[in-house]
């Protein structure tokens, strides 16, 4: 029972981290109508800039400035890259972001080397806040939870309660009408792209010290972020939150319990083959849940695409 509570907290942390990435990606998607393959690369840039700034000015300044720098860079990418490519259609945009992802990875390796860099949890948060039956909960995790919830609340407030948010929402759905009303729609798009990438950078600064800061970090998280927004429904903020938490808890619980597939199969009434040694299903029966845990989100994505192709939270077609 205690372990369940601990896993709930761990899963929440993983899920919220995923949300910080997918929130930006899903906003950008609803704006441009195209997936930004370089999104996880901005997350990586955030972690590396965070590391570099923390060397001179400490972690807190890193948390403040790294997202700003990455956000400005992201806005520049939209203004001088994507906007030019846009006129050639979605395929060109897709290839542009894909190329950008490769470019950023190479650039990171060029400047910081191919090894892990020692980006550490700040000393002020490097202690166990409390422990549940021997399982320490690091203060840093609780800090991650609060930052993520703060970001979600802030985004939700800006998007639904403020004038800027309304203009953004209107610009997403009816860009020409909004433009006709005298708003600078390209500027709005640029800002949304900048904010989206800055959010990814926040996630990078926060996750870098716990998940490791290395050139492969974008690749490791990149695919799962796409899975998240596909499950949640492309363009839906609530969907991104729901899917992130679902994936966070799913992978955490799957990794925590050594439930074998054999037990699940027996429980639903399929009997074990008697002659196990020669059965073609032998390996299948011996799989444990923790072995396939990280694959489960992909399975969920396939099921979502089959049964609810527009995602769990998005109305209408894909």
């Amino acid at each position: 029972m205690d372990l369940i509570l601990v896993n709930l907290i761990d899963g929440l942390v993983t899920g919220l981290l995923l949300f910080m990435l997918s929130a930006g990606l899903t906003l950008i998607f609803s704006m441009m109508g195209v997936l930004n393959f370089a999104h996880a690369s901005f997350y990586m840039l955030g972690a590396y800039f965070g590391y570099q700034i923390s060397q001179y000015m400490g972690f807190w300044m890193a948390l403040l400035f790294a997202p700003i720098i990455v956000g400005i860079f992201g806005a520049g990418v939209e203004r001088y890259g994507l906007r030019r490519v846009h006129q050639h259609g979605h395929v060109a945009e897709l290839i542009f972001t894909f190329g950008l992802a490769l470019l950023i990875e190479e650039a990171v390796q060029f400047f910081w080397g191919k090894s892990q860099v020692p980006f550490m949890v700040p000393e002020a948060l490097d202690f166990a806040l409390f422990s549940i039956s021997g399982n320490a909960i690091p203060a840093y995790k609780i800090f991650m939870i609060f930052i993520a919830i703060g970001i979600f609340a802030g985004l939700l407030y800006v998007l639904t309660k403020t004038r800027i948010g309304m203009i953004i929402q209107a610009a997403l759905s009816f860009p020409r009408t909004v433009e006709a009303l005298g708003h600078n729609v390209p500027l709005i798009f640029m800002c949304v792209f900048g904010v989206g990438t800055a959010l990814a950078a926040v996630a990078g600064v926060i996750a870098g010290p716990v998940l490791g800061t290395f050139p492969g970090m974008a690749f490791v998280l990149g695919s799962i972020v796409f899975v998240t927004i596909v499950i949640g429904g492309l363009g839906s903020l609530w969907g991104a939150l729901f899917a992130s938490l679902l994936i966070g808890w799913m992978t955490t619980f799957a990794a925590s319990y050594n439930v074998g597939l054999a037990e699940i199969l027996t429980a639903i009434g399929i009997s074990k083959p008697v002659d196990m040694a020669n059965s073609p299903w032998r390996d299948f029966w011996q799989i444990t849940l923790s072995q396939i845990g990280p694959i489960l989100p992909y399975l969920l994505m396939v099921l979502t695409l089959i049964f609810r192709p527009h995602g769990l939270f998005r109305k209408g077609g894909l």
Partner: peptide, 22 residues
């Protein structure tokens, strides 16, 4: 405990660590 995890796929090892500690 004797277990294997997918190579290069695990984002966060916390649940594994919890299991090992407990």
């Amino acid at each position: 405990g004797d277990e294997v995890h997918p190579i290069g796929q695990v984002k966060d090892f916390t649940p594994y660590a919890r299991k090992i500690v407990s």
